[in-house]
Amino acid sequence: MATTNLSIYNKENLPNAEAYRFGIVISEWNSEVTYNLHQGAIDTLLDLGAKESQIDSVFVPGSVELVYAATQLCKKEIYDAIIIIGCVI
């Protein structure tokens, strides 16, 4: 497990997320990895101005289901961005 933050970014170079809505699809397979990535994505979006109410998370059993779930979120046409998190080892 990584102990160093490899996701250091310059906040000034990224847009404010206050006006956007996000869908996140997370694989439960390899949850030791994907759950931490999920939390990192949420922390980053909140740091960039998004509100918790603007972030919806959907958990699926494995990586195979990621595309289907993301497609279903796209069909809702309410999200500005869909983030997909999976880990195949």
Rank of each mutant, 00 (worst) to 15 (best):
K76H: 04
I83T: 02
I82N: 02
Q39C: 01
P61F: 03
I8Q: 15
K76T: 14
T71N: 08
G23E: 11
A70T: 10
T44G: 03
N16H: 02
T34A: 06
E28W: 00
G49D: 06
V67C: 05
F22N: 07
N36M: 11
K76F: 03
S63P: 04
A19S: 13
S7L: 15
I55F: 03
V60C: 06
S27F: 06
G86I: 03
E65P: 03
I26Y: 01
P15N: 04
L14A: 05
N5R: 04
V88P: 05
K11T: 11
G86C: 09
K76G: 13
I89T: 15
V33C: 05
G62A: 01
M1K: 13
G23N: 04
D47R: 05
D56H: 06
A50E: 11
A81K: 10
I78Q: 12
A41R: 06
E28L: 10
Q72K: 10
V67R: 11
M1W: 09
F59I: 10
K11Y: 08
T4K: 14
N10M: 08
S27Q: 07
T3Q: 13
W29I: 08
I82A: 08
T3S: 12
A50P: 04
S31L: 02
L45M: 09
N10V: 14
D43R: 12
I26H: 01
A17F: 07
K75Y: 10
L45F: 08
N10E: 15
T71S: 11
I8K: 15
G40K: 11
L37I: 05
K76W: 03
T3C: 00
G49Y: 00
Q54Y: 04
I8Y: 08
E18T: 14
I26K: 01
L6A: 11
W29F: 13
I84T: 14
S27K: 02
I42F: 01
D80K: 09
N16I: 04
N16M: 00
L73M: 15
V64W: 14
E77P: 00
I89S: 14
I55R: 03
L14Y: 12
C87M: 06
G49K: 02
G40D: 07
P15D: 03
C87E: 10
I24F: 03
S53R: 14
E28D: 09
S53I: 15
E12F: 12
E77H: 07
G23H: 02
N30Y: 11
N5Q: 01
Y79H: 11
I85T: 06
V33I: 14
C74H: 12
S57T: 13
T71G: 04
D47G: 13
A19H: 12
I8N: 14
V58N: 01
K51C: 12
T71H: 05
A81F: 10
C87I: 00
T44L: 08
A17I: 01
I8E: 15
C87L: 06
G62S: 10
E12T: 15
N10Q: 13
H38F: 08
D47F: 00
P15I: 04
Y79S: 11
V58G: 03
N13V: 09
N10H: 13
K75D: 15
K76R: 14
N30C: 04
I82W: 03
T34N: 01
G23I: 09
